[in-house]
Each structure stands twice: as structure tokens, then as C-alpha cells.
């Protein structure tokens, strides 16, 4: 009994040390603007680039398809950590030696660039699956009305595809939140970096526990949201009124396709 109590006391002293918690919390909260900056910028650029890549991948021009395919394969296969180190340190060395100063990036721009380029590859796959899940008849109907390919995409296919990809994109976003912690290796002063620093100072891992709580506080609601959206989508497609014949079958078929095609957050990597 006594040893159990001792064990509990030791656990509390090392992982939930109240004194250190009180010191760490304000320290970590102060890093949140940097985390949000990384998140918002990386999300924005990766979605935009991902959408462009997905359209290129579905283009009728072979060069575009080839480029987008190669890009997606490369960045899906490349460790994000390596991407970060290369963009921050690798480019800086080249920049310093060659006089191309623009290659020397600050920590935050480097982190945003790496996160965006890698996540663009993931988003591109999600967008592509979403666009492909829209029945071919939609594009044909739009084209038959005289709309160009671009107009048909913009006004008919993409608005429907976006709705479908929101749940998987939410999963991407959750993964991105967690992966901002990788930016600590290029000394971006975000959550993990600051927690590790504090851990060194107090020689106690409690700051890591605090950082873990902060991450989880942000990710768990999003995880719940993502699964709620997914359930809603399933319900939505089942609730469609059958409209007779093959046309009535379309919604159900489409959603089955999507379920099979769309990468769900964890599955992609």
C-alpha cells in the first residue's frame, strides 16, 4: 500500500507537478499565436495548391497529369521531417554559399512552406477523389448547356465535391495540428519546442504533459466533428428520396464510391 502511494506521489511529482504546471501554462499559451499562424497559413496554401494539383491530375493535358501525379507521389512518400530540415537548413546552406539570399528562410516561412507542400499532396488526393465521385452526368449536363469545362467545374462539379470532401479535409486538418509540432526541430517556438525547453530548465517532464493536454483539447472536438460530419453524410445519402429507375440509384451509388475512394485521415499515411 505504502509503495503504491509512493509510486503515485512520484508520478504526480514528475508528470503533474502543480508548481511546474502553473509556470508552464502561461508559457505555452503564449505560443498559441505562432501555432495558429502555422496552421492557418499551411492549411490555406495546402488547400489551394491541393485543389490546383487535383484539377491538373484530372486534366486532359498529359503534362499536367504527369506533373501532378509525380508531385503527389513524391510528397506522400517524403517524410515531413526531412522536408522541414531540407527547406530550413538545406536551402539556407545553398543560399549562403551561392549568394542566393532568398533561399535563406526564417523558421516560420520555412515551416509553412514544408507543411504546405506536403499537405498539398494529401489534399490533392482528397479533392481528386471528391471530384471523381461526382457523377459524370453532371459534367455532361453542364457541357450540353454550352458551359465550358472551367464553368462546369466551377459552378456544377466543385460545389458538390467540396461538400463531400469536408469530412476528410477535417481529418487532414487534425493531422496538420499535430504535425505543427515537427516545426520544433527547426526551432519554431511553438508548443512542443517551448515545453521541451521548460522541461530542460526544471528537469521534469510535466511541461510535456501540459503540452499534450493543449494538443488534445484542440484535436478532440475536431475529431468528434469529423465523425459527426461523416455520419451526417451517410444519413444524407440514405435519406435521398428514390426517384425511380437508374436515376434514383445514383445518390446511393455515388456515396458508396466515395466511401471506397476517400482516404480517411489516418489511412493515408
Amino acid at each position: 500500500m505504502e509503495s503504491l502511494l509512493n509510486g503515485f506521489e512520484a508520478f504526480q511529482r514528475y508528470y503533474l507537478n502543480w508548481q511546474i504546471i502553473q509556470e508552464t501554462v502561461p508559457l505555452l499559451l503564449r505560443t498559441l499565436p505562432i501555432v495558429f499562424e502555422l496552421l492557418v497559413l499551411s492549411m490555406f496554401f495546402s488547400f489551394v495548391l491541393g485543389l490546383i494539383l487535383s484539377l491538373m491530375r484530372l486534366s486532359r493535358f498529359r503534362a499536367f497529369r504527369w506533373f501532378a501525379g509525380a508531385y503527389v507521389d513524391f510528397f506522400r512518400g517524403l517524410p515531413l521531417l526531412l522536408n522541414l530540415v531540407f527547406v530550413y537548413s538545406g536551402l539556407a546552406i545553398v543560399g549562403a554559399n551561392s549568394g542566393m539570399r532568398f533561399l535563406i528562410l526564417g523558421e516560420i516561412p520555412a515551416a509553412v512552406l514544408s507543411l504546405s507542400t506536403t499537405y498539398a499532396a494529401y489534399s490533392a488526393e482528397v479533392f481528386r477523389a471528391g471530384i471523381e465521385s461526382i457523377h459524370r452526368g453532371q459534367m455532361e449536363a453542364a457541357r450540353s448547356l454550352g458551359m465550358t469545362y472551367g464553368q462546369s467545374m466551377r459552378y456544377v462539379v466543385l460545389p458538390q465535391a467540396i461538400k463531400i470532401v469536408i469530412p476528410p479535409l477535417t481529418n487532414e486538418f487534425i493531422a496538420l495540428i499535430k504535425d505543427t509540432s515537427l516545426a520544433s526541430v527547426i526551432s519554431v517556438q511553438e508548443l512542443l519546442f517551448t515545453a521541451k525547453e521548460k522541461m530542460g530548465v526544471v528537469a521534469n517532464p510535466t511541461p510535456l504533459a501540459v503540452a499534450a493536454v493543449v494538443y488534445v483539447v484542440f484535436t478532440i472536438p475536431l475529431i468528434r466533428l469529423a465523425s459527426r460530419l461523416e455520419k451526417k453524410r451517410e444519413r444524407g445519402s440514405k435519406g435521398q428520396k428514390p426517384t425511380g429507375g437508374s436515376a434514383g440509384k445514383t445518390p446511393a451509388l455515388v456515396s458508396a464510391d466515395i466511401a471506397a475512394q476517400l482516404p480517411t485521415g489516418g489511412g493515408v499515411r
Partner: peptide
């Protein structure tokens, strides 16, 4: 082709209305 298609209306077996 887009200009020519404007002169031709087409109706499909599966309706293909825009659901959104």
C-alpha cells in the same frame, strides 16, 4: 463546340439535374 452546343438542348435518361 461550346457555341454550337448552345443551339442544342439535351435531356438525359438520368435527368442530371444539379442537386445543389
Amino acid at each position: 463546340v461550346n457555341q454550337v452546343r448552345q443551339k442544342i438542348g439535351m435531356v438525359f435518361q438520368s435527368f442530371n439535374l444539379f442537386p445543389h
